[in-house]
Simulated scan of single mutants.
Amino acid sequence: MAHWTQLDAAPIPGGGTLKLLQRGESEFSITLGHNELMNSRLRGSEEALATLAAERLGKRPRPRFLIGGLGMGFTLRAALAVLPADAEISVAELIPQVVAWARGPLAPIFAGCLDDPRVSIREADVASLIRAGKAGYDAILLDVDNGPDGLMVAANDRLYDFAGLAAAKSALRKGGVLAIWSAGPDRSFTERLRMSGFSVEEKKVRANASGGGARHVVWLATAAAADRDWSPPESAPSRRGPRRR
């Protein structure tokens, strides 16, 4: 079997390094330390993050999506495949090199989707865009970590605590959906979503588009309009440690 070759590396705010690896002609991997964050052969659950959210929303005029984390573009491409021509999709990517990889060595995987007129790439912290997006999105899709525990950037924890969930709910339009990818289940986070006033469905999805591979989790959380003024508790339940994806 061919060995992995490192193509590039990118520092992460707060410490740590992302590495882009290639094996053979067409397999790519992005790693953080000993954790593989994504692999070009495993796209099923990332695609499900978009398709499940779109199904939950149903047909809406000019739907606005915010995707947190560009990755290898699987969630973005899946969203483009199911959303109408008048949709608007903003993708927040904190690390500029990830965007450069998408236009460079990973360009065959992205297949020109960054040039779709529905897409805008924001080199920004998705948490900042959420806080600024009052009732601005029909769906917020988060795949910035291995789950709700801030593995890649410790500051990402603020996306998943009570204050972060309150901000996400405020940024959603009536009946909007917050969809979150995770490498595995987390009962305390499911409960936190419910305590934050969301109606929650936890979907188990396979890593491979063909239906094989590891079982990942996508939370689909919907907030009723009557819950929009909910205030977060002073403290949140504790989180588990990092998981390998």
Rank of each mutant, 00 (worst) to 15 (best):
residue 1 M to C: 06
residue 2 A to T: 12
residue 2 A to Q: 12
residue 3 H to Y: 04
residue 5 T to I: 12
residue 9 A to K: 12
residue 10 A to C: 09
residue 13 P to T: 12
residue 15 G to E: 07
residue 16 G to Q: 11
residue 26 S to M: 04
residue 26 S to P: 00
residue 32 L to E: 10
residue 32 L to I: 03
residue 33 G to L: 04
residue 44 G to D: 07
residue 45 S to I: 01
residue 47 E to T: 06
residue 56 R to I: 01
residue 57 L to C: 08
residue 62 R to S: 14
residue 62 R to D: 14
residue 62 R to N: 15
residue 64 R to Q: 12
residue 65 F to Q: 02
residue 67 I to Q: 04
residue 67 I to G: 00
residue 67 I to S: 01
residue 69 G to H: 06
residue 70 L to D: 05
residue 71 G to N: 03
residue 72 M to E: 04
residue 72 M to Q: 03
residue 75 T to N: 02
residue 77 R to E: 11
residue 81 A to C: 02
residue 86 D to T: 09
residue 89 I to Q: 05
residue 89 I to G: 02
residue 93 E to L: 04
residue 94 L to C: 03
residue 97 Q to E: 15
residue 98 V to M: 12
residue 100 A to P: 00
residue 109 I to F: 05
residue 111 A to T: 03
residue 111 A to W: 01
residue 112 G to V: 07
residue 119 V to R: 06
residue 119 V to C: 06
residue 119 V to G: 05
residue 120 S to N: 08
residue 121 I to L: 15
residue 122 R to P: 00
residue 123 E to M: 09
residue 124 A to P: 00
residue 126 V to A: 09
residue 127 A to L: 13
residue 135 A to G: 09
residue 138 D to A: 04
residue 143 D to I: 07
residue 149 D to S: 13
residue 153 V to G: 00
residue 154 A to L: 10
residue 156 N to P: 01
residue 160 Y to H: 12
residue 165 L to V: 09
residue 166 A to K: 08
residue 169 K to G: 15
residue 170 S to D: 14
residue 177 V to I: 15
residue 183 A to P: 00
residue 185 P to W: 08
residue 187 R to W: 02
residue 190 T to R: 13
residue 190 T to G: 14
residue 191 E to I: 04
residue 193 L to N: 07
residue 194 R to V: 12
residue 197 G to D: 06
residue 202 E to V: 15
residue 204 K to Q: 14
residue 204 K to F: 11
residue 210 S to D: 15
residue 212 G to H: 08
residue 218 V to G: 03
residue 222 T to H: 01
residue 231 S to Q: 15
residue 231 S to A: 14
residue 231 S to C: 07
residue 234 E to S: 12
residue 234 E to K: 13
residue 236 A to K: 03
residue 238 S to P: 00
residue 242 P to R: 12
residue 244 R to T: 12
